[in-house]
Amino acid sequence: MEPRPASFWWLTAFFVLFVVFLYGPTITIGILSFQGPEGGLTFPMRGVSTYWFHNLFEQQAVGDIWGSWRRSFILGLMVMVVTVVVSIMAGLAFRTRFRGSGVLFYLTMASLVIPSILITLGVGRLFDQTGLKIHWATSGFGSQLTWTLPFGLLVMFAVFNRFDKRYEEAARDQGASDWQTIRHVVLPIIAPSVIGVALFGFSLSYDEFARTQMTAGSYNTLPLEIFGMTTNVTKPVIFALGTLTTVFSFAVIGVFLATVWILRQRRLRQGSDAGRGV
C-alpha cells in the first residue's frame, strides 16, 4: 500500500473532532443524568446516583411522560407501516415515466423542504375549522407522513435506479404473474432498503416535533412533552429522560441494523451459486 499523505492525518484529526462535536453533548447529558439528588444541570457531579431515573417513574407534578411515550411509540409504528407500504407502491409507480410523474415528484420533494410551520399550522387550522378533531393519531399522523414519505421515496428511487431489471424479465419468462414477480423477486431483492425505510419512518416519527406541534391535540407525544418540560423543569430529571429516550433510539437502530445483517447472512448461505463456476 502506498503511504498515507500528510493530509490524511489532518483530515483524520478533523473527523475525530467532528464526531466529538456530534456525540459529546449527548454523552455529557448521559453522565449528568446520574447526578446525585442534590446535583444541578451542570458539572460538578454531586455524587453518583440513579435518583433521577427513579424520579421519572414516580408521579410527576406536571405532564404524563409514560402516556406520551406510549403514544409516540404507537404513532411511530403507524407511521412506519404506512411509510413502508406507500413508499414501495410509489417507488414502483415511478419506475415508468408516466404522465404527471414530474409534477408528483416535485410535489413530494416540496413536502420535504416546505417549512414545517406551514404544515403544522395548516393542518391544525384545517382540522379545527372544518370541525374535525385534532388528534395525534389523525392530524398528527398525517403531518408526520409529509416528512417521512419523501425520505422513503428518495430511498426507493436510489434502490430502483440501481435495480437490475433482468431478474424480473427472467421471472416473467418463467411465467410469473405481475404480483408473483413483485412478491418473489422484487421485494426480496429490495428488502434491506425497505428495512431502512421502516427505520426512517419509525425514528423520524418518534422524534418529530415541528410538524406535530399544533397537530397533536390535547394529548402530547414524547417530544412535545419533553419540550414542555424544558420550560418548567430545571432538574436533571430531564437529562435522565433524554438519556433513556436516546438509548431507546439507539436500540431501535441496532435492531434494524441487526435485521439487515441477518438477512444478508441468510442470503449468502442460501443464495444460488449459479454462474459461479464459469
Binding site: V86, S87, F94, I114, V123, T146
Partner: peptide
C-alpha cells in the same frame, strides 16, 4: 395503460400529499 397503473400505485402518496400538504397550504 402504463399511466393508469402508475397513478393507481402512486394514489396513496397522492392522497396523503393532497390532504396534508396541498389542502392545508391552500387553507393558509
Amino acid at each position: 395503460s402504463e399511466t393508469a397503473r402508475a397513478w393507481a400505485l402512486a394514489s396513496p402518496l397522492v392522497l396523503v400529499l393532497l390532504a396534508f400538504l396541498v389542502l392545508p397550504i391552500i387553507w393558509i
